Simulated assay, not measured.
Amino acid sequence: MYLLGGNGHCKVVVDLLKKVSSITIESIFDDQPKFKDIAGIPVYKTNSLDFFRNKELIISIGNNHVRKRIASQIEANYLSAIHPSAILASDVVIGQGTVVLAGAIINPSVCIGKHCIVNTGAVVEHDCVLGDFVHVSPNASLAGNVTIGEGTHLGIGACVIQGVKVGQWVTVGAGAVILNDVPDFAVIVGNPGKIIKYNSIENG
């Protein structure tokens, strides 16, 4: 398989994949490579996205908006990957291209979309629904029955109480505590969470 994106998030994905014996990474590609290799895997400059057509691929880029743009341009065989130390209930649904990192806990009846990141130590409680291209940062926690819209980024250590609906392309600041529904494109910070501005549609 191949990885597209060769920076910090890629390093974490490589470490995950090296712990999954059934997966071998052939090489890593990046538009502007900063490294010759990552953990011994060669990094090459991306010349054409057509190269990835029908190949096994994970987009190893942390930026939600960039992952969506690339996924819309490449018809690849997108793989999902789950760290061996993550704990997932038996009925959890994980979309293609999604990665679940070390120590994450995902409880029953959760549905996670395509190309998401459930980062280190994140908790997703029962009956949550996450749209495509969502990033749940390290140690962020979602209580039961939370809905997260497409492209939303929950910052490190953020908390969302039960039953809350967070819209699309929302930015939730680090450590924020979300007690009420959040509209699309909002940027919300603090405890309790307060909206301070709105993201543009173009930038997600």
Rank of each mutant, 00 (worst) to 15 (best):
L3D: 05
G8V: 06
G8R: 11
G8D: 12
C10W: 03
C10R: 12
K11A: 13
V13L: 10
V14G: 08
D15Q: 11
D15N: 14
D15A: 14
L16E: 09
L17C: 07
K19Y: 00
K19D: 15
V20K: 11
V20T: 08
S21V: 04
S22N: 06
T24M: 00
I28W: 08
F29W: 14
D30H: 02
D30Y: 08
K36M: 09
D37P: 00
G40E: 03
K45L: 07
K45W: 02
T46C: 10
L49D: 00
N54P: 00
N54T: 05
K55D: 04
K55M: 04
L57A: 10
I58G: 10
S60Y: 13
S60A: 15
H65C: 13
V66G: 02
K68H: 11
I70W: 04
Q73F: 01
N77C: 10
N77D: 15
L79I: 12
A81C: 09
S85V: 10
A86P: 03
S90W: 01
V92M: 01
V92T: 06
V99M: 02
L101A: 06
L101M: 15
I106K: 01
S109H: 11
V110N: 01
I117S: 04
N119M: 11
N119K: 10
D132T: 01
S137A: 15
N139Q: 15
A140T: 12
S141R: 15
L142H: 02
E150A: 03
E150Q: 14
L154S: 09
L154H: 05
G155F: 09
I156T: 14
G157V: 05
C159K: 13
C159Q: 12
I161R: 00
Q162A: 13
G163T: 06
G167R: 03
G167Y: 10
Q168M: 01
V170D: 03
V172W: 02
G173D: 05
I178R: 00
L179Y: 05
D181G: 10
D181L: 13
A186S: 15
A186F: 12
G190C: 08
N191W: 00
N191L: 11
P192G: 13
P192Q: 08
K194S: 11
K194F: 00
I196G: 06
G204M: 05
